[in-house]
Design a protein around this nucleic acid. Structure first.
Length: 215
DNA sequence: AAATCGCCCAACCGCTGCAAC
DNA sequence: TGTTGCAGCGGTTGGGCGATT
């Protein structure tokens, strides 16, 4: 077993350490990670304790292969959010940011590279370079009944027509999978993604996504 | 059977953001 | 306003293990 310069244990966790950590969290709850090693009687740093709990000991963590639904969701959320693994994981019940990150690196990235290779061999693709845009908090607002376009148009008074149209195109490019022949996905929990009936609109009605996007 | 390779995933490290002072 | 400490995040590493030679 390796130790840090401060004498902290490093490396794989033992069952005894897991049990101590479980007991401690059970008694005091999550948080105050700097106190956890002391409370639990563990010779581990707070980061190590937190990581172990979040990635391995938290109840309801799913183990095993990712389902097709989960794969699809990860791809779409990654397209939307980039490498914001914790946010992506927050949308996938039972999966941790570390799980999602590892999965992406080992599976999805390979898939995308293979897809790109195939695409390059068959067609000459046009590279789209969307301009980065700034959205204000008021831009997207009513989650209950609006589409992206409606949200953006709501700001017509405060933005120039060019900016408005640019915003709409940017969002459509980002979200519209229709042109690629992608018909979207309906997840087992009933949430639909892509351009099925309701499509992205349903996805965006889900309040959390707007919070994620920090509109 | 042994050696090597490659994949997967648990764990670590460095950084940033934020709150308290 | 600057400093400090904590929490959390994403990138990276390294060990275990199965597959291949």
């Amino acid at each position: 077993m390796v130790s840090s310069p401060l004498g902290m244990r490093k490396g794989a966790w033992t069952k005894e350490e897991d049990n101590l950590l479980r007991k401690c969290i059970g008694k005091y709850g999550e948080g105050k990670w700097n106190l956890v090693p002391l409370r639990a009687g563990l010779n581990r740093c707070r980061k190590s304790c937190r990581m172990r709990w979040l990635n391995y000991l938290t109840p309801n963590i799913k183990r095993g292969d990712f389902t097709q639904d989960e794969d699809d969701l990860i791809i779409r959320l990654h397209k939307l959010l980039g490498n914001r693994w914790s946010l992506i994981a927050g949308r996938i019940p039972g999966r941790t940011a570390n799980d999602v990150k590892n999965h992406w690196k080992t599976h999805q990235q390979k898939k995308l590279v293979a897809q790109k290779d195939r695409a390059q061999k068959t067609t000459k693709s046009t590279i789209l370079k969307p301009k980065p845009l700034t959205f204000s908090k008021t831009m997207a607002c009513s989650i209950e009944s609006s589409t992206f376009e409606q949200n953006i148009r709501r700001n017509e008074n405060s933005s120039s027509p060019k900016v408005i149209e640019g915003s709409i195109k940017w969002w459509n490019n980002l979200l519209d999978t229709k042109e690629n022949g992608d018909q979207g996905t309906t997840l087992s929990n009933g949430l639909s993604l892509g351009f099925l009936e309701g499509g992205w609109e349903d996805f965006c009605r889900d309040k959390n996504i707007w919070e994620i996007l920090e509109f």
